[in-house]
Amino acid sequence: MNRLSFGWTLPAYSVLLYAFLYLPIVVIVLFAFDAKAIPGLPIDAFTTDWFSASLGDTRLVGSLLTSIRLALMAAVLSTALAMPAAMVLAWRPVRMKSLVLCLVLGPVVLPQLVLGLGLVVLFRAAPDLIGAPAIVLAHTTMTSSYATLMLYSRFLGFRRSYIEAAMNLGADEFTTFREVVLPLVAPSLIAVLLLAFTDAFGEFVVAWFLAGFTETLPIAIWTSLRQVISPKIYALSALVILVTLFVSVSAQVWILGQSRRECES
């Protein structure tokens, strides 16, 4: 610890900032219990009716299930694309590596709006794909960038001697992968899957452009935000937010613990 101490100001400020970050979340969860039809302060009566109402709303639940299904596909696809590529990038000499990295990371900095519109133009050539397939393809493009980046850094930190030891003892490339690489990177792989799922699940702009008649949860919420908002939306959002927080926090804590263990060994 250094002597440059700010007394109580730094912790106090940090508490305020965390409050700012979690205020909207608290408000949504709070209003999900508000008995009034149009939520607002003060909250006089609490109810859990909105939760059952939202889960009974077939359209809303349908969009939730659509989102889960599509995000699951995008997460699996992007991880499947990212993992072999990250391994090659981290472990093998690759010609024009910086070009490949630019290609892989481009979707991160590209405004989603522009990617979405570009895909709209592209899918004019294949109008049958508009809807669920186009959304999965687009989300895979976006999440595979993050996935590749995260797995790339994991594989960079992977001890090469584990692989050499396995091969030296008679394991071929595929056996080495199955017996040594996969079990050791499995936690990172799961974390990447979870984060890719979360990202694809919540993405709105690109999905909206390519949706056709498909309705994901963010699209359903967007549509309802343009009308009078039913508290059902807040109830469902509250549920989704809590699950999202749980998933993303546990995925990241997992990665953190993993890297810490790697440092110790």
Binding site: S161, E164, A165, M167, L169, V180, L184
Partner: peptide, 20 residues
């Protein structure tokens, strides 16, 4: 021949014991 096709076995500097 690949490493796994050779009748050699190595003791690594960092041991490289499989942690799992």
């Amino acid at each position: 021949a690949a490493p796994y096709e050779r009748d050699t076995a190595m003791v690594f500097q960092d041991y490289a014991l499989f942690p799992h």
